[in-house]
Design a binder for these strands. Structure first.
Lengths: 187, 187
DNA sequence: AGCGTATAGTAAAGCGTTCAACTAATGATA
DNA sequence: TATCATTAGTTGAACGCTTTACTATACGCT
């Protein structure tokens, strides 16, 4: 390969700002969600994906892909969510290896209760701070990065994570990270 | 407060793409760094900050702030890094509560060995995929988010994390996330 | 000096993630 | 139908992070 190049000052600044912003933002969102609703953000996301699925049921693998999660991580998480009574596992009759995860009514209720405050956090810390143009720039940049991630280990375990990129295309309308589609819309 | 508002389709797309991209990107960078050099990214960052400090020494608190880390987390991390022989703790004579962390020669060597491949990863997955304009957009967006994070819990423990924002201002030249300033420049 | 508060740093428990190993069922091939 | 690779999912150990509590020192005020 060509000899390695460092980052110039411009790139360095962008990289460090990005690193710090994403790190602190994620930590803050996690903390607020935990504080306000007692749900870790990772689990919240799982509940959201389930809430958007038909009948609120998904194969474990599909759920793992949809939530950008490894199978192992999802398995542990579902165990926890099951203990909380928010999800139940169901076995699959056509493929006896398989398992479904189903969102319970309690789980849905917990999600509905947590969503407004979480959306408010996302708005306050990110969305409402950016102009419409910046938001669009951020989307394009994110999709570009996602496309580049394809073919790496990041997608090795979740080939369907591509759906995230494709969801950015018109046609497959994406739904809120907050159970809106499921009728919990507050507005 | 005003009634809570969901995200519109535009915002939703941006938010989800951003979420997926940052999550997968971080995971991938972490994985590659771990695979190529056996260093978790969080620890790598600590080594970088130390390598940039005068005499490669920093007070624990300063190091915590510089690496956007809680004191507790840093304390644990330094314990690990000490076990690896990459950092040593030194006591402070003027403030007996205080402690310094010093980067050892071995630590510096480990950092120098890890840097090229890590920078290459950052380039391949992020920097080189974006135009100069996009990179600048990303920097502005990140700095905006960082500014908004000020005053939240995220900054409660690290008031000096502001330095990250300010570093974006000309004057305090920021240095590479890779020990370049310390003379390990490969190019 | 003496007292109260703030600061520096560490320690321990609990939690979530990763990694590697493992079980079980499916599917493809001969 | 016997075999072997693949896929679905789970499990346990190791690891790092967070939270809370704690020790020790410094500072500020009277």
């Amino acid at each position: 390969m060509t000899e390695s190049r460092w980052l110039d000052e411009h790139q360095q600044r962008a990289w460090r700002s990005f690193l710090a912003a994403t790190r602190l933002l994620q930590a803050q969102l996690d903390r607020e969600l935990q504080r306000d609703s007692g749900i870790p953000h990772a689990y919240y996301e799982i509940l959201v994906r389930l809430s958007e699925a038909p009948d609120r049921v998904l194969r474990m693998s599909e759920l793992a892909d949809a939530s950008e999660s490894s199978r192992s991580r999802l398995s542990h998480a579902v165990t926890r969510l099951e203990e909380a009574g928010w999800v139940v596992r169901e076995s699959c009759s056509t493929d006896r290896r398989g398992a479904f995860a189903r969102l319970t009514d309690e789980g849905f209720a917990a999600l509905a209760a947590a969503a407004p405050s979480h959306v408010a956090s996302v708005r306050r810390l990110l969305i409402d701070r950016l102009t419409g143009e910046q938001l669009e720039q951020l989307r394009v940049i994110s999709d570009t990065v996602l496309a580049g991630l394809r073919g790496t280990d990041a997608f090795a375990h979740c080939p369907q994570a591509q759906a995230v990129c494709e969801a950015a295309e018109p046609g497959s309308v994406t739904l809120p990270e907050s159970a809106e589609s499921a009728g919990v819309t507050p507005a």
